[in-house]
Design a binder for these strands. Structure first.
Lengths: 112, 112
DNA sequence: TCAGGTACTCACCAAAAGGTAAGTAAGGAG
DNA sequence: CTCCTTACTTACCTTTTGGTGAGTACCTGA
């Protein structure tokens, strides 16, 4: 019998979902409520439009974020967390806390 | 005033530590106690020697895992979690749980 | 003398991820 | 008729990450 899942544990699966340079920051930004594309671009500083869209699309296809288009000119698109996305953020909270708690150590051992 | 930290939140810092294709699985394998290099190679199925060492070295430099050499022939090296590593694993537990809980959805929306 | 077992180490290559810069669409304002 | 805003989209390039396969060091036991 071959493995039914490509993942070896839940952590493995979760890592697949939040993997990518900008996803944690996007998730964190959306934690405070729906955001427009342009707002996210500002809040997630350093991200380019291409990367932001790419990551949002991936999160959308994973049903982590919801995309709502308002048919206006100029266009308006709002991104928000789905129920699944909110539960993911809840699971992410302890990790965020860990990172905050050990920020000094983490920075001290940062490569380069 | 420039930012003092390269990280924008704890999650960002944590992601930097656990980033890499094999780190979550290595961490999970070490959760059950110290492991020799050869044991990890078997438990983390699919990993090559080069990648395993590389990731272990990174975790070691971040003070997440401890490396202990036994001066024998043939050589024996044991890897185990440090206190920091254990606390990281604790923070990772909810994420693992989330992944396990939503395995079906995650698989269903997997690209390719 | 030589194979065996363990933990690496290295040179080289392939693939994936990320970055840059320019362009598109749509309609309202001037 | 042109500019403005917003949210993308595309082509192309660079960087990072991961993979392959071979080689090394060490002592032991046959």
């Amino acid at each position: 019998m071959a493995a039914v899942t490509p993942y070896t544990c839940g952590l493995d699966a979760a890592a697949d979902v939040i993997g990518g340079k900008w996803k944690p920051r996007i998730l964190w930004a959306l934690h405070h409520g729906p955001r427009r594309f342009g707002e996210l671009r500002k809040e997630v500083s350093g991200v380019t439009e291409k990367m932001l869209i790419q990551q949002l699309r991936e999160l959308e296809s994973r049903d982590i974020v919801h995309r709502e288009v308002f048919h206006q000119v100029p266009p308006k698109v709002e991104y928000s967390l789905t129920t699944l996305g909110e539960s993911l953020n809840v699971a992410l909270a302890p990790l965020d806390q860990w990172g905050a708690d050990h920020l000094t150590e983490i920075e001290a051992t940062r490569p380069c």
